[in-house]
Simulated assay, not measured.
Amino acid sequence: MLAVNDIAPGRKLLLAGDLTAEVIENLGDGEWLRVRILSGADAGAEELCHATDVQNLV
């Protein structure tokens, strides 16, 4: 699990399930990011992403 406190909007992430996402908003609580899914069946969807789902920065 990466520390998500300093991940800025615009950064791309590799998420659990081999999904790629772009950070739209960092909620600043150290746990949640609002992201846009860039790959997979849900491409284009905006979701909340928990820190435990973040595998790495892309």
Score class of each variant (00 low, 15 high):
Val4Cys: 09
Val54His: 01
Ile7Gln: 07
Val23Leu: 11
Trp32Arg: 08
Ala51Ser: 07
Met1Arg: 12
Gly40Val: 03
Asn56Glu: 13
Leu33Ser: 00
Leu27Asn: 07
Leu15Pro: 00
Leu33Val: 01
Leu14Glu: 02
Arg11Phe: 11
Leu48Asp: 12
Asp18Ser: 15
Gly44Glu: 07
Gly10Arg: 07
Gly28Asp: 01
Ile7Ser: 05
Ala51Tyr: 05
Ala45Trp: 09
Val54Thr: 02
Lys12Pro: 03
Leu33Pro: 00
Trp32Glu: 04
Asn26Gly: 09
Leu19Lys: 12
Arg34Met: 10
Ala41Thr: 10
Asp53Glu: 15
Val58Leu: 15
Glu25Lys: 11
Pro9Arg: 09
Ile7Phe: 07
Lys12Asn: 12
Gly40Ser: 05
Val58Asn: 05
Pro9Thr: 07
Val35Cys: 06
Asp29Gln: 04
Ala3Phe: 10
Asp53Tyr: 14
Leu33Asn: 00
Asp29Gly: 05
Leu14His: 02
Leu14Asn: 02
Arg34Trp: 07
Asn56Cys: 10
Glu22Gly: 04
Leu2Gln: 03
Cys49Trp: 00
Ala43Ser: 06
Asp18Pro: 08
Arg11Pro: 05
Ser39Cys: 06
Arg36Leu: 08
Met1Ala: 12
Ala51Gln: 06
Pro9Glu: 12
Ala21His: 03
Arg34Phe: 05
Glu25Asn: 09
Leu15Ser: 01
Glu31Ala: 12
Asp42Pro: 08
Val35Tyr: 00
Gly17Arg: 14
Met1Leu: 11
Trp32Asp: 05
Leu27Ala: 03
Thr20Glu: 15
Glu47Phe: 08
Glu25Ser: 11
Pro9Ala: 15
Gly10Phe: 03
Ile24Met: 14
Leu15Phe: 05
Asn5Leu: 13
